[in-house]
């Protein structure tokens, strides 16, 4: 492959890409936002949540892992794709206990912000699974409520790749796959509140809780109270 850049289109807009870039990386540079939950800047791509699904020359692919190729025709913000994304996000809401009014992440939560962006306001068509998993509050500075986990695996990758610790990992398969702690509980790991995996940015929901900071910023003045998720990327568009 040559080292020179090439062009492809997203929703008709020409986008410049460098060889080796994924569709999402090129889109981010061009100021086109593709919704995503399991992908996070600074972590390797996983392609797990499938919220970033786009149609690339007619095929449904995960934009975070699919390499961009010259003359690719990508469909991103169509009603069809957004309705599939909305269903995915709604199913994530229903798999866990996402009671926004009682969650300290409300307003900073990417899952919630994605529901706002995708207009998840229709009466539901899915049942609530209402899991009853135990809270892990053993660590002096960190608590873990995995009933809110969406299994994005961002904490796993951050702990392995950035912190070099491997505190979290996946257990189980299929619908039973969960993020779990590598140990009896969090207190029996070398987790520290300063870890990248524990930082506010990495967990997109309210699963990893830093103790004693929950409501230091009041609801109403939080990250996604000012605007839709993805506006920062879209503001880069020339």
């Amino acid at each position: 492959m040559s080292d020179t850049g090439f062009t492809f289109t997203i929703d008709g807009l020409p986008v410049q890409a460098k060889p080796g870039q994924t569709i999402m990386e090129a889109a981010d540079d061009a100021g086109v936002y593709i919704p995503r939950l399991c992908d996070h800047e600074g972590l390797r791509h996983q392609g797990g949540c499938r919220v970033c699904t786009v149609k690339a020359s007619g095929r449904s692919v995960a934009a975070c892992t699919q390499p961009a190729t010259p003359d690719l025709v990508v469909e991103n913000e169509s009603e069809h794709i957004n309705s599939m994304r909305r269903d995915l996000v709604e199913m994530l809401f229903h798999e866990g206990n996402h009671l926004c009014p009682i969650c300290e992440a409300s307003g900073n939560c990417e899952l919630q912000a994605m529901a706002y962006r995708l207009d998840m306001t229709q009466p539901t068509k899915f049942p609530y699974l209402e899991p009853c998993r135990a809270l892990d509050a053993s660590h002096p500075d960190i608590a873990l409520d995995t009933n809110r986990c969406i299994s994005c695996g961002r904490c796993i990758r951050a702990s392995q790749d950035v912190d070099g610790k491997g505190i979290f990992g996946y257990v189980g398969r299929g619908i039973h796959r969960r993020v779990a702690v590598n140990g009896v509980d969090l207190a029996h790991t070398d987790a520290a509140v300063t870890d990248d995996a524990i930082s506010a940015d990495v967990c997109p929901v309210g699963c990893i809780i830093r103790k004693r900071v929950g409501f230091s910023k009041p609801i109403g003045s939080r990250e996604f109270d000012d605007g839709l998720i993805g506006q920062k990327i879209e503001s880069k568009r020339k």
Binding site: L99, C100, P101, T124, C132
Partner: peptide, 21 residues
């Protein structure tokens, strides 16, 4: 019309659905 989160998904009272163990 379901008005508010309690009507939509149970809301705060639904916390009792997740009493564990």
């Amino acid at each position: 019309i379901a008005l508010g989160q309690c009507a939509i998904m149970g809301g705060l009272p639904a916390m009792r659905n997740a009493i564990m163990h």
